[in-house]
Design a protein around this nucleic acid. Sequence first.
DNA 1: GCCGTTTTCGGCCCGACTGTTTTCAGTCG
Length: 576
Amino acid sequence: MRNDQVVEHLDAIADLLEIKGESPFRVNAYRDVARRIAHHPEEISILAEEQRLRSIPGVGETLAARIVELIQRGTTETYEELARSMPAGLRDLLAVPGLGPKRVRQLYDQLSIASLPDLEAAVQAGRLRAVPGFGAKTEERMLRDLARLRQRVRRHLLGEAWPLAEEIAAALRALRLAERVEVAGSIRRRLETIGDLDIVIASARPEAFAARAVALPVVEQVQEHGPTKLTLLTQRDVQLDIRVVAPHEFGSALLHFTGSKQHNIHLRAMAQERGWKVNEYGLFDEATGARLAGLTEEEMYARLGLAWIPPELREDAGEIEAAAAGRLPTLITEADVRGELHAHTDWSDGGASLEAMAEAARARGYAYLAITDHSRSRAVAGGLSVERVREQRAAIAALKARYAPFSILAGSEVDIRADGTLDYDDETLAAFDFVVASVHSGFAQSRDVMTQRLLNALAHPAVDVLGHPSGRLIGKREGYELDVEAVIAAAARHGKALEINSQPDRLDVRDTVARRAHEAGVLLCVATDAHSPRHYAALRFGIGQARRAWLPAEAVINTWPLERLLTWRRRRLDVL
DNA sequence: GCCGTTTTCGGCCCGACTGTTTTCAGTCG
């Protein structure tokens, strides 16, 4: 059973327990574990087999047994019993804004509403008004929301949400009514997908600011408009939450609205132990009400005995303990990157010439660029024949003098073919300056076959990096079936790097896998897979994932000086 | 349902906004 299926089942139990009116803490126990499994790098079924479920924080005796039961039977008695006591479709109603467990229960008890179609029919017939607590405004809003719900507004890619948030933040700064305007929330944590945009503002004139903000052209609809809190829909149907605080509260507000929720809860528990209280306005002594911190995030953390924690780490995944022990890593930054090691040109399916790609890489301040056009099997992508490879090598050689000391490496993104062999002979492979090996075909192969394919590629001395190792396209395609642990172990054994592909819909390998790989001693390569000069800018998305993976610059091969990189490859090639 | 350098029981983060309420519950993040 896949992790996401376990997550879905636990969430379903949590939803139904909540509608039933069970203890919020019991509900939370299920939700918390679901969230942790969703972010877990390993397969839960393997953890269950090896009796390691209890190593997940929040999993006790009962939940461990439930998960084992779920994996063995495909369902649990807990869930079945809940589903017998009420229609499981009630869950769908929770997706309606303004409908929580209490009101869902109420609608079911009083109007027998058990599904979204039921609800829509009741609203249209004007029957909702009869229920206490539901009025004309609720009815009106619900009609609108139900229509929107049918279109299923999904999560947005970081690559789309981040630039949009920056654009809006710039517009808010231009109002000149705020001292600080910062993007917070999951964008600041560089999560691969984003639910809504969070922006925190410090202003001494909150009302004036809010009045101007709602009038911005980007705002399509105002959903909530209080003196310090705004919920807006932007033109692209993305929800935007704005919170305005006083300047001296900015640090605590930024901390609060950056999250994650779990990180905040952990910090608050720490504060509680000391008789303090944390909220968005600061850190306070519970007894005296005295204000202990709030101006900056650094101050908030310091008062709690912690080093400032980079937003990308704030997932309650060990970062608080590390901060307390002074063992936070120095994370890689964009500025550490010295070169691009995965780029295409118009020799294969890229949109720009060798010169244009080299020019743009040099303009970014890079010391080197590896040209890695597709290999011969990728006919649809203009894959290079051995002959064309030689021609390209000559073309690159001819450019060398012009760009020195900037270096252009003659590389390849070589296909790992369906039978597990590479797409060029050994001699051709050894002659490249750099080789990325990737799967572009046979996605439907079995887990064992696919894993073996990747292990073969990693074992080949001429391969430097495994490109977009999982093959996923976020929101479009699950990755192929794969034994991630075996791939990590092989990469470690052979001294190879795994790619963190920076394209917003790839981000592959993902953060949790990259972290696990690093812990296993595997090197990473943050690459953009650029098909045109403007794609180089995607680097920041990959760097975001690398930071979420706790990576220092040292662990990422394209922060190395060129000489070290070439030596790393050459030592391996000696055996060929 | 989990968890324990005060606890194996009694806690479990905290506040804004809305709608419909005549003082606040429910929802949301």
